[in-house]
Simulated assay, not measured.
Amino acid sequence: MTDPIALVAGATGPLGRRMVDHLSELGLRVAALSRSGDHPPGAQWSTACDITDAAAVDTALTDLEARLGAVDVLVNAAHPRAPGATAVADLGADELAAQLAAVAGHLTLCRRVLPGMRAAGSGRIVYLAGALIARPIAGHAAYGTAKAAATTLTRYLAVEEGRYGITANIVAPGRVVDPDDPVDTDPGWVAAAEALTARMSLPDFPTPGDVAATVGTLVTNPAVTGQTIWVTGGEPIT
């Protein structure tokens, strides 16, 4: 029996790279999608792909299936970077639409891998959201709204696809600090970090490795679906 295939979208960001490594360490054959097309060391296949382009997603997945086989695990960490803090009163429709395009991209990825998962009688879908879906920080409404919409879509997948042995869950990190990258010194983020630290029960922010380990747990557990797992250092989310 061959090792399962995990597709990581957004595979070259700090979280995506660590998820590629961790899933590879778990014994999965990992494929990587990213806008840049860079090849993470732990991946067996990679290509450049904008998930908001449905034709490009289909082309990429057709090539992946021909080379490795059908996708057993989809981990979606792909999302456009928020351009900066914008209050709702100043938010333009174009800026909101740019963020919401990632929701359609998540739908495209899920629809593309579901037939193979259904045929196999099992599958895992994990969406990387964030604490902003439930704990707003002023200025990030467009990003938080898009992440919340994709989270809801993922929960519906859990309800509808469970009969095929497919699970769908959400991992929602708070502020994540990569020990290998410089800490963001933007005054707004510094102030937000101080406020979050005061709410946390643990002394340190989660790392990309902590997030990847949570994803790995959901990928290997067939009995958990429709859940949002908060990786926030103990910051209470209600």
Rank of each mutant, 00 (worst) to 15 (best):
A85D: 09
V159C: 06
D181C: 01
A193H: 04
E161W: 09
R112L: 06
D94H: 08
A66Q: 15
I170G: 04
P203T: 13
L107D: 15
V190F: 00
E194W: 01
M117L: 07
L68Y: 14
R124G: 05
L196A: 12
P203R: 13
A101F: 09
V73C: 06
G116K: 10
A195I: 08
D72P: 11
I125E: 05
E65Q: 14
T167I: 13
G69N: 06
L128F: 03
D63L: 09
L157T: 12
Q99R: 05
T154N: 15
P173L: 09
P203V: 11
A77V: 04
G121L: 01
L100Y: 12
A119Y: 07
L196S: 14
D184G: 01
A82Q: 07
V183Q: 02
E194T: 12
T145I: 09
A192M: 02
V159I: 14
Q99C: 06
Y156I: 11
R111K: 13
L153N: 08
V126L: 10
L68A: 12
G69Q: 09
L96V: 05
P83C: 11
V176C: 03
H106A: 13
A191C: 03
P136S: 05
G209N: 06
A142K: 00
L96C: 02
S122A: 10
A70D: 15
N169A: 06
Y164E: 11
A129S: 12
Y143R: 01
E194N: 06
D184C: 00
P206T: 14
E95G: 08
A148M: 05
A150Y: 02
A150R: 02
A66V: 09
L153P: 04
G116S: 08
Y127D: 12
A98Y: 01
T108E: 13
R155P: 13
A146G: 10
A148G: 10
L202W: 15
P187I: 05
A104T: 15
A191T: 15
A93N: 03
V159Y: 08
D90G: 04
Y127C: 07
V177N: 05
G162R: 14
L128C: 04
P80N: 08
E65R: 13
D180I: 02
L202R: 14
D72H: 13
A70S: 15
L64I: 13
D181G: 00
D63A: 15
D184F: 00
P115V: 06
G69M: 10
V159E: 15
T108Q: 13
A192T: 07
P136F: 03
Q99H: 14
I137P: 00
R118H: 02
D181L: 12
A172Q: 14
V88D: 01
S201P: 00
